[in-house]
């Protein structure tokens, strides 16, 4: 098992395996996102209070969930890198940051656009919104710290530590709607309880969430593959690969 794990974490074998898996994940991601978006936009019922602006939910909620999950995945890669010094984990950490930053920005922007017709304001400095803004800055911080340091080893360690420290922000985001007074509604969707909305609404939402996760893995793999190529461009296997194509 350990042996297998070690072989898989070698950049070369990861490059080959991910190349085989990528097209399938890509097809599934597009499928889920198209079905979910069309369902949410055209077929799901409007909200009885918010009307059609509630359709923003089908992009805002998946983006927000993925923003937090992608941070969790980035921090896991950081932990793996700090404990076992696996090169691939350092690459994964570095590659998750820009995707996470853009998805968190998307969650903030769609939230602001949804807030305007619903709350009457684009932005409030409440706990949920502020802690999500901090999440965005954490992603940006990881990117900035990495590019500010020349030495790859110390840059890897420093960003991994920053990513791990930032994990304290995740429970703050999650429980912010229960701990502090806020305009933001609390979660109406959880793994353990029956959803409080009708199936015509939570089904397309669930499909969109799955589509966003699939998208993340495709984008993450693509970036990791590019970074592997960048770091290993002088090696024999890259040369042979290019010659054989």
């Amino acid at each position: 098992m350990w042996n297998w794990f070690h072989r898989l974490s070698a950049p070369k074998s990861f490059f080959e395996l991910s190349g085989k898996l990528l097209p399938w994940f890509g097809i599934l991601a597009v499928l889920a996102l198209v079905v979910g978006a069309v369902w949410g936009l055209a077929f799901a019922p409007p909200d009885y209070q918010q009307g059609n602006s509630a359709r923003i939910m089908y992009v805002h909620v998946p983006a927000s969930i993925l923003a937090q999950s992608s941070y969790m995945m980035m921090a896991s890669a950081a932990l793996v890198f700090l404990v076992w010094r696996i090169k691939l984990a350092d690459i994964a950490l570095q590659c998750a940051a820009p995707i996470g930053a853009s998805i968190t920005l998307l969650a903030l922007l769609t939230g602001a656009i949804w807030g305007k017709p619903t709350w009457g304001t684009w932005w409030v400095w409440d706990a949920r919104l502020t802690s999500t803004l901090i999440l965005f800055f954490l992603f940006v911080g990881v990117i900035a710290l990495r590019s500010a340091m020349d030495n790859r080893d110390s840059a890897g360690r420093a960003t991994a530590v920053l990513a791990l420290v930032g994990v304290v922000n995740l429970p703050i985001i999650k429980y912010s709607v229960d701990w502090w007074f806020t305009l933001h509604q609390s979660a109406s969707f959880s793994l353990t309880e029956k959803p409080t909305m009708p199936a015509e609404m939570w089904l397309p939402l669930l499909i969109m969430v799955i589509g966003f996760y699939l998208f993340f893995f495709v984008a993450w793999m693509l970036r990791i593959r590019t970074e592997i190529l960048h770091r290993e461009i002088r090696t024999q296997w890259v040369r042979e690969r290019l010659l054989s194509q």
Binding site: L41, G51, N52, S53, R55, V59, W114, P117
Partner: peptide, 10 residues
């Protein structure tokens, strides 16, 4: 409804 701009921009 009147929310076209909001929904489509998202």
């Amino acid at each position: 409804g009147e929310h076209g701009l909001f929904v489509w921009s998202c």
